[in-house]
Design a protein around this nucleic acid. Structure first.
Lengths: 148, 148
DNA sequence: CTAATTTAAGACTTTAGAGTCCGTTTATAG
DNA sequence: CTATAAACGGACTCTAAAGTCTTAAATTAG
């Protein structure tokens, strides 16, 4: 994967948040997505500090998006968790690689980075929710939890 | 970087190998490239097992390419050190992401992977040597070691 | 007020990659 | 044959990411 597992977990959790703005629990997200609970909780707390989620403690508490899902981009989440420079540098690690001394993969990699960066700023959590829904409806995603 | 540091070191070392087929020492490569010596030596030993380098022990020994530099691709080195699946999987880590349930970055990432994969199988160690030479000639690369 | 529930915060453990160290083996030079 | 120079192999340490655990703080229900 291009991103860290924490970022992947965060995106999956955001995609699984309820669409109606109600609060949901870290514990529930973790069990639905089959992710390590305490670790996911810590990641969600980081998203609170990044102003992507807001939280309330205690019974009836939980996490929810600070904004409508279509106003939170994937890129914003990546930057919040990995910093703004996560895709910098030569793909092969050549320190001398640059505009005037490109390595053989420099142009291909540069195009790739630009493409991914653009896609990240255009894709929103809403898009992830829609994908997630598709999977659930067709029975390929998470199992329903069996409660009537 | 997309690859591990070991792969980056390997590519830089291969690019710095002498072009005339003479043996060169892990120690010398490490000092020229300013890389950790014992670690580079271990990586080079891995390349011997992958039939990319051959070695002889003892005085006058060292490492050299098993083939002309233009017959060793960057992709071959990457596969030798990271396995054949290093670029598989969803960029965001969505386990359900696939051809019929693409995540919002799936197509962009797929194009990227294809592009990089193609470039990797086309670029050879020879190409890296040429880039390296350019840098040295124009004085941007490694410093000469100062010994008279 | 008390008990229960949930996030918050931070210390702790685990794991894998990065990097070091040491003893062994193989070859060369004298 | 001996000393030296190198690769070889494995065990070891270091570091950061991944993941766990414990305690505190906030909120709700009774």
């Amino acid at each position: 994967m291009l991103f860290t597992t924490a970022t992947g977990y965060a995106l999956r959790a955001l995609a699984a948040m309820p669409e109606d703005g109600s609060y949901c629990l870290a514990k529930d997200l973790a069990s639905r997505l089959e992710l390590p609970g305490p670790y996911l909780a810590k990641i969600l707390q980081g998203l609170v500090q990044a102003d992507i989620l807001e939280s309330v403690r205690g019974p009836k508490g939980g996490f929810r998006l600070t904004r409508p899902a279509h106003r939170i981009t994937v890129g914003e989440v990546v930057i919040a968790l990995e910093g703004p420079n996560s895709m910098e540098g030569c793909i092969m690690g050549f320190p001398s690689c640059g505009g005037d001394h490109p390595c053989p993969l420099h142009d291909a990699w540069g195009a790739v980075k630009a493409q991914v960066a653009t896609s990240m700023t255009e894709a929103t959590i809403r898009d992830l929710q829609l994908m997630d829904l598709r999977n659930v409806k067709e029975g390929k995603g998470r199992p329903s939890d069996g409660r009537p």
